[in-house]
Design a protein around this nucleic acid. Structure first.
Lengths: 138, 138
DNA sequence: TCTTGAAGCTCTAGTCACTAGAGAAATTAT
DNA sequence: ATAATTTCTCTAGTGACTAGAGCTTCAAGA
């Protein structure tokens, strides 16, 4: 049995975040000492690590909740879990593609401006004013 | 002079967002009709398009505020504008690099799971439980 | 055993950039 | 004149936390 501070360090999740996860029902309320302090066991640590890892990979709290719910039914098919992960992969790929388009535009804009002119001639400012100068959609 | 609805359509920014921008001081309060409705001119449209474009490129409201402020001093050096844009480019590149690492892990996780097994054997769930299975840091 | 200082508790409010909804008033079209 | 649409203000909600106030409990050293 360990305190919330120890759990926090073990899992790499901040103390207020753990309390927040409990508040929204993502983790179960733990035992309490007589003085009302939280005490956790190994199972809590494992779950919190799971959550942390999934958050780091970009899963939403909602998706993580669904995965945990699935985990409670070991005899069910894992099709749903697979689907959630695949969707997360697609979302990530879309974000990458979108950011790459922005990168191209930003590179073009900054390449044109060396920061040594006057504001009135600044390509950064004029490019932002005029979407027509962009080479692709975004 | 046109209404907030027309401005909204012209700039591609939703009506409540325009009011929000006014509230936080990103755009100036416009004229009002006798009946208290907002009426805008061309200058407002240009500024709103500028904001929209910069937002689409990922600039924060704060950065946009700084760029607008610069725009009010045409005789100053554009070094600061250039710096803001370069920082935005760096941020974007970091985000892309980070998302690419996540993509690799997600791809690996989903490749291992065809969704036809049982939850108890699911690679998605076990991979999320065990960071040690990851091939790179994230 | 006492004391001190760290760690814990609850609760509220703030972050960012909006978005949604209620209920009333103004404007536009028929 | 009436009906339909738009606009107004205001409050509250979103996601995923983070920060702070003011209080209590715990663990370690003297």
């Amino acid at each position: 049995m360990f305190s919330i501070g120890v759990l926090s360090k073990q899992a790499g999740v901040k103390v207020p975040t753990i309390r927040y996860y409990e508040q929204i029902g993502l983790i179960d309320p733990p035992f309490r000492t007589e003085g009302n302090q939280r005490r956790y066991g190994e199972a809590s640590l494992e779950r919190l690590k799971f959550i942390k890892h999934a958050r780091d990979l970009g899963f939403s709290i909602e998706a993580i909740g669904a995965l945990i719910e699935l985990n409670h039914h070991p005899d069910k098919s894992c099709a749903e879990a697979s689907q959630i992960a695949r969707q997360q992969l697609l979302d990530t790929q879309h974000k990458i593609a979108s950011l790459k388009r922005l990168e191209v535009e930003l590179q073009r804009i900054t390449d044109h401006c060396h920061g040594d002119g006057m504001v009135s001639d600044c390509y950064v400012l004029s490019a932002l004013s005029d979407h027509g100068k962009c080479t692709s959609e975004h």
